[in-house]
Amino acid sequence: MNGNFEIALQLLGIGMLTVFLILFLVVFLGNIIIRFVNRFIPPVETKTSRTNVVQPAISTGKMAAIVAAVQAVTEGKGKVVNV
């Protein structure tokens, strides 16, 4: 029993230390990745030329309502191609 208790005490120390260490690494690595990406992989800006933009014949509010309704009815499978 005493031997088992010693193992449990060891595990309490080692286990909590390991979990903290790993989550500390998560924080550290996360920060490194964020800095690296911010520096070397900037977000790609999508440029849209004015000539390509087609003014919708329907208001954006109505369009959003139609898209939401189609998604609700088709459980996300349907797409609004044309109105």
Partner: peptide, 12 residues
């Protein structure tokens, strides 16, 4: 630090 490109961070 503000995340500028979340998608890339989430992949890495």
């Amino acid at each position: 630090h503000k995340i500028k490109n979340l998608k890339a961070v989430k992949i890495a």
